[in-house]
Amino acid sequence: MNQKVVLITGCSSGIGLSLAVRIAKDEKKRFMVYATMRNVSRGAALVEAAGKTLGRTLEIKQLDVCDEKSIKACVDSLPERKVDILISNAGMGLIGPIECQTIDEMKTVMDTNFFGLVRLLQEVLPDMKKRKKGHIVVISSVMGIQGILFNDVYAASKFAVEGFCESLAVQALRFNLNISLIEPGPVITEFERKVFEEGMKVDLSKADKVTADMFTNIYLKNYSQIFETLGQTPEDIAEHTLKIITMDNPPFRHQTNTLYTPMTTLKYADPNGDLPIDTFYKMVFEHDKVFNASLNFLKMLRWRSRKSFTIDKDKDKDKAS
């Protein structure tokens, strides 16, 4: 069988780990997965989750998206340097008031989340162009569409990714290549737990009292409840991604969480851009009871639905066709 080669970054935990395992365990064995991570000594969880696929449809390799030599060495180690599907997943988060963050911290986020993708494509894209075949899948975020309170730098990195891919997609069509942006909302992972823990440690001494109070008593206070209500599992994101990479005509953008869609739709409803900003402001500062009631209502919807709406609908369509 002619398996497609899938290269995935950031596979030591979270979404990357779930992606690697789910694709490697594809029932039809359509893929050979190269799951990469910056530090392979952190691969124990992936090894355990991979089970019998390890050494068969899954191999673990070292790759640091912030190091061009590391990327080249990894791609050079693949048979004929061939990558059919690149899944750019490696990333890092940063929350808090910008006056409490250093420029170096911000640069690290941009270097990983944005320039990490650029480095990958500089190495992989030329070969895809020559073959006129390939699929670039980027694990982006709804924060690449709409900024969220105290996620200024993280949102900026994802906006950069979205703009970069939107521009590149036009060129890619000329070479018969597909680009897909997977846009999750909150996902319950070790990644998010670490971001929250780092947020709890932020030195707020450089922030004014109002900003510090806003971050501590509004943002951090509601962080867990928002994830509990809207949060998806990394396995759910993996299912959505598998669906995207097996489609004949994959979409450019795909949001994984239908419960979050009304929030991102606000941006497109008002060309001036005021509607989403005003709505979020009122939700956060003026209608605390409405905000909590909305979360409880969404929680009920999540409990009733259990599974991803879009995937279930697609499965039904497949059965009917």
Rank of each mutant, 00 (worst) to 15 (best):
A169Y: 05
V170P: 05
Q171L: 05
Q171E: 15
Q171A: 10
A172F: 12
L173C: 07
L173N: 13
R174G: 10
N176C: 08
L177K: 08
L177F: 14
N178I: 07
N178P: 02
S180C: 07
S180T: 10
L181I: 00
I182S: 03
I182A: 03
P186R: 06
F191S: 00
F191P: 04
V195W: 03
V195K: 04
F196G: 00
E197Q: 14
M200Y: 10
K201F: 04
D203L: 12
L204G: 12
S205R: 14
K206P: 05
D208S: 10
K209C: 13
K209T: 12
K209G: 03
V210S: 11
V210E: 13
D213Q: 04
M214T: 07
M214R: 02
M214L: 01
M214N: 02
F215T: 08
T216L: 13
I218C: 07
I218M: 12
K221E: 03
Y223D: 03
S224Y: 08
I226G: 03
I226S: 09
E228L: 10
T229R: 10
L230H: 09
L230W: 13
Q232E: 14
P234R: 03
E235M: 05
D236P: 00
I237G: 01
E239A: 07
H240Y: 15
L242A: 02
K243L: 14
K243N: 12
I245K: 02
D248H: 04
N249W: 03
P250T: 08
P250W: 09
F252T: 12
T258K: 07
T258G: 06
T258Q: 07
L259W: 01
Y260C: 03
Y260S: 03
M263W: 01
T265S: 13
L266Q: 08
Y268P: 11
A269L: 15
P271E: 06
L275R: 14
I277L: 13
Y281M: 10
K289M: 11
V290T: 15
F291P: 09
N292H: 14
A293Q: 15
